[in-house]
Deep mutational scan, measured.
Amino acid sequence: MIQEPALPPGWEMKYTSEGVRYFVDHNTRTTTFKDPRPGFESGTKQGSPGAYDR
């Protein structure tokens, strides 16, 4: 089984109701579709995929 590298501290991976993966940075309280791990580009969309909830 291939294991992906861990997200940076304070980051979480979530999915929209449509199943699109996005990332929550709890450090800055922002969201992005761009994977924060080096070498992982998950898309070019920018903006908030939804309300920030902790």
Rank of each mutant, 00 (worst) to 15 (best):
residue 10 G to R: 07
residue 42 S to Y: 09
residue 21 R to A: 10
residue 6 A to N: 15
residue 33 F to M: 07
residue 37 R to H: 03
residue 38 P to Y: 07
residue 31 T to M: 03
residue 28 T to G: 03
residue 13 M to Q: 08
residue 24 V to M: 06
residue 36 P to D: 00
residue 47 G to R: 12
residue 13 M to V: 14
residue 52 Y to H: 14
residue 38 P to I: 15
residue 13 M to T: 12
residue 8 P to F: 04
residue 21 R to F: 04
residue 18 E to S: 06
residue 2 I to F: 08
residue 13 M to A: 13
residue 19 G to A: 06
residue 16 T to H: 02
residue 36 P to G: 00
residue 1 M to I: 12
residue 54 R to Y: 10
residue 50 G to D: 12
residue 31 T to C: 07
residue 17 S to H: 15
residue 11 W to H: 02
residue 20 V to I: 08
residue 5 P to H: 14
residue 33 F to L: 04
residue 18 E to Y: 05
residue 6 A to T: 05
residue 18 E to K: 08
residue 2 I to P: 02
residue 50 G to Y: 04
residue 20 V to H: 09
residue 29 R to Q: 08
residue 3 Q to T: 15
residue 29 R to Y: 05
residue 49 P to Q: 12
residue 24 V to R: 03
residue 8 P to I: 02
residue 34 K to N: 03
residue 14 K to E: 05
residue 10 G to E: 07
residue 27 N to E: 05
residue 48 S to H: 15
residue 50 G to A: 13
residue 10 G to M: 08
residue 44 T to R: 08
residue 40 F to P: 13
residue 4 E to Y: 13
residue 38 P to D: 13
residue 14 K to V: 10
residue 4 E to M: 07
residue 53 D to Y: 06
residue 36 P to Y: 00
residue 16 T to C: 04
residue 27 N to C: 06
residue 10 G to F: 07
residue 4 E to G: 09
residue 3 Q to Y: 14
residue 13 M to F: 09
residue 31 T to Y: 01
residue 43 G to R: 09
residue 17 S to P: 10
residue 54 R to F: 15
residue 12 E to V: 08
residue 3 Q to R: 10
residue 53 D to P: 05
residue 17 S to W: 06
residue 9 P to I: 08
residue 13 M to Y: 07
residue 54 R to A: 05
residue 23 F to M: 01
residue 6 A to H: 15
residue 43 G to H: 12
residue 15 Y to A: 11
residue 26 H to Q: 04
residue 16 T to Y: 01
residue 53 D to S: 10
residue 1 M to G: 04
residue 1 M to Q: 15
residue 16 T to V: 01
residue 49 P to S: 11
residue 37 R to C: 06
residue 39 G to C: 13
residue 17 S to Q: 08
residue 27 N to S: 06
residue 35 D to A: 07
residue 54 R to Q: 15
residue 17 S to D: 15
residue 47 G to C: 12
residue 50 G to F: 12
residue 4 E to F: 04
residue 12 E to S: 10
residue 34 K to A: 08
residue 16 T to F: 00
residue 9 P to C: 05
residue 53 D to A: 06
residue 46 Q to L: 10
residue 21 R to L: 09
residue 49 P to A: 04
residue 15 Y to Q: 13
residue 26 H to F: 04
residue 51 A to K: 13
residue 21 R to N: 04
residue 22 Y to F: 05
residue 5 P to I: 06
residue 12 E to H: 02
residue 19 G to T: 02
residue 34 K to S: 08
residue 9 P to N: 15
residue 20 V to A: 08
residue 39 G to L: 13
residue 47 G to D: 15
residue 2 I to W: 04
residue 5 P to Y: 14
residue 43 G to T: 12
residue 35 D to C: 04
residue 17 S to K: 11
residue 16 T to G: 03
residue 2 I to T: 13
residue 53 D to R: 05
residue 19 G to F: 02
residue 48 S to D: 14
residue 52 Y to V: 13
residue 4 E to H: 09
residue 47 G to W: 06
residue 11 W to G: 01
residue 47 G to F: 06
residue 30 T to N: 09
residue 4 E to T: 05
residue 12 E to D: 12
residue 41 E to K: 12
residue 41 E to M: 10
residue 4 E to W: 06
residue 19 G to Y: 04
residue 32 T to Y: 01
residue 12 E to C: 05
residue 20 V to M: 10
residue 51 A to R: 11
residue 46 Q to F: 07
residue 46 Q to D: 13
residue 22 Y to W: 02
residue 39 G to T: 15
residue 30 T to I: 10
residue 46 Q to G: 13
residue 33 F to Y: 12
residue 52 Y to L: 12
residue 4 E to L: 06
residue 52 Y to K: 10
residue 9 P to F: 14
residue 47 G to E: 14
residue 21 R to D: 07
residue 27 N to H: 06
residue 35 D to W: 05
residue 50 G to S: 14
residue 13 M to W: 06
residue 37 R to L: 06
residue 8 P to N: 08
residue 39 G to E: 11
residue 43 G to Y: 09
residue 38 P to R: 14
residue 22 Y to S: 01
residue 36 P to H: 01
residue 10 G to I: 00
residue 26 H to R: 04
residue 17 S to T: 11
residue 37 R to K: 05
residue 11 W to E: 02
residue 29 R to H: 12
residue 17 S to F: 05
residue 50 G to I: 11
residue 53 D to T: 09
residue 13 M to G: 06
residue 24 V to D: 01
residue 21 R to P: 11
residue 40 F to W: 09
residue 41 E to V: 10
residue 5 P to A: 09
residue 27 N to I: 04
residue 18 E to C: 07
residue 17 S to C: 13
residue 39 G to I: 15
residue 43 G to D: 11
residue 21 R to I: 11
residue 24 V to P: 00
residue 11 W to L: 03
residue 39 G to D: 11
residue 8 P to G: 05
residue 48 S to A: 11
residue 15 Y to V: 11
residue 37 R to N: 06
residue 24 V to K: 02
residue 26 H to T: 04
residue 33 F to E: 03
residue 6 A to E: 14
residue 26 H to V: 03
residue 12 E to Q: 15
residue 25 D to E: 03
residue 41 E to W: 08
residue 6 A to D: 15
residue 7 L to Q: 02
residue 31 T to R: 02
residue 34 K to E: 10
residue 44 T to W: 07
residue 2 I to K: 15
residue 51 A to I: 15
residue 17 S to L: 06
residue 19 G to M: 07
residue 31 T to N: 03
residue 38 P to K: 11
residue 30 T to C: 09
residue 47 G to S: 11
residue 40 F to Y: 06
residue 11 W to D: 02
residue 23 F to H: 00
residue 32 T to M: 01
residue 46 Q to S: 10
residue 37 R to F: 02
residue 24 V to S: 03
residue 54 R to S: 06
residue 25 D to Y: 01
residue 12 E to W: 00
residue 37 R to S: 04
residue 9 P to V: 14
residue 17 S to V: 05
residue 44 T to N: 05
residue 33 F to T: 07
residue 53 D to C: 07
residue 42 S to V: 07
residue 50 G to H: 07
residue 34 K to C: 13
residue 30 T to S: 11
residue 13 M to E: 15
residue 45 K to Y: 10
residue 28 T to C: 04
residue 29 R to L: 06
residue 35 D to H: 09
residue 23 F to A: 00
residue 25 D to R: 00
residue 20 V to Y: 04
residue 3 Q to P: 10
residue 22 Y to L: 03
residue 37 R to E: 05
residue 45 K to R: 10
residue 44 T to F: 03
residue 38 P to N: 09
